[in-house]
Amino acid sequence: MTKARFKVVFAGPLVSFQDQGRFGHLRFGVSTSGPMDRFAHRAAHALVGNSNAGSAIEVSLGGLILECVAGEAMLTVAGGGFSVQCGATNTNGWTTQIIRRGEKLTLRAGEWGSWCYIAFAGQLTLDKWLGSTSTHSMSGFGAGKLTAGVEFEVQNSEVFNSRCGDTLCPNAARTTDKVRMIVGPQDQYFNLEAVKYFCSKPFELTDAFDRMGVRLSGPKLLLKDALSIPSEPIVRGSVQISGDGVPTVLLADHQTTGGYPKIATVLSVDVDRLAQMRSGDTFRFIPVSAEDAIAAVRKHYSTCEAILDDLAAPKATLAEKLQSLNLIDGIVSAID
């Protein structure tokens, strides 16, 4: 067991500490927050050998430079395909590395993806709010954003050379151009053409994109009348349409109630894949029934659990590593 201390040399906007989220307080205006890509967050912890997915660092496209100022630690980077420099090692995407005193870890936006995670073997000692370290971006509640000069500690860090090296990003963690949703609950306020366009035309992510939501561009989705509806609950994945017909998909730090009509809600299994896309990427919404939504989430759960089990196993030799990668792809292609 070792201890390590890190100092933030540089952090782009929206780089924050996130555990799995803050649950059960929606009625008090508290969204769950937590990782924008929940699967990648768990995968990073699994790869680094943590049995629980506790706190990790969520890195935005703005990037991050950390310096190890004391001790040594093992860490995994997983999520979008970011460029990673750890000490003298340069790589891309998913990787597990050891960092020692005096070395720097630099993450920059890479080929794809908007968010990635740094999980350390061991625990980060951080402030909690309502039992969770997850940082709510608007209020700053939780462990907080990372900014230049911030220091933090990793406790009980274990370092195993056998875990180190690159891992192929599983298909389940990549983006998709088909985003499944259930139409409603306020589709009745839109004209038929708007619902038809919503279910068939491509939409593009704009750069109005943060942890609260992402605005889309596409066909205007017009309401039947310019009416105002009483404020009502919003969830992660709600697609609300503003008065001028522009959709916004609400994300991890969403407001919990609002008065814009919602034309659809994205399935939990697809909303994080959407959040990994970038401004300029396009996709289509695919309407599904409630029954199909339940089937999709159950299938996704078993697929992801199998992948996480596999990622968690120490990879002693290169041969075993290659074999496990084949297994991951096998699972994904067999089920999807």
């Binding site: 649950f23 059960g24 929606l26 009625r27 009483p230 404020s231 009502e232 609950p233 969830v235 919990t256 109630t257 939990s268 409630a290 029954e291 939504a293 339940i294 989430v297 159950r298 759960y301």
Partner: peptide
């Protein structure tokens, strides 16, 4: 059922889809 969110004219019931269904 894991959580309820009351609003002005409606109420959202959030459930665990591995345990139950909308129906």
């Amino acid at each position: 059922v894991v959580e309820t969110v009351p609003a002005l004219v409606n109420l959202l019931v959030i459930f665990d889809p591995l345990v139950t269904t909308h129906t």
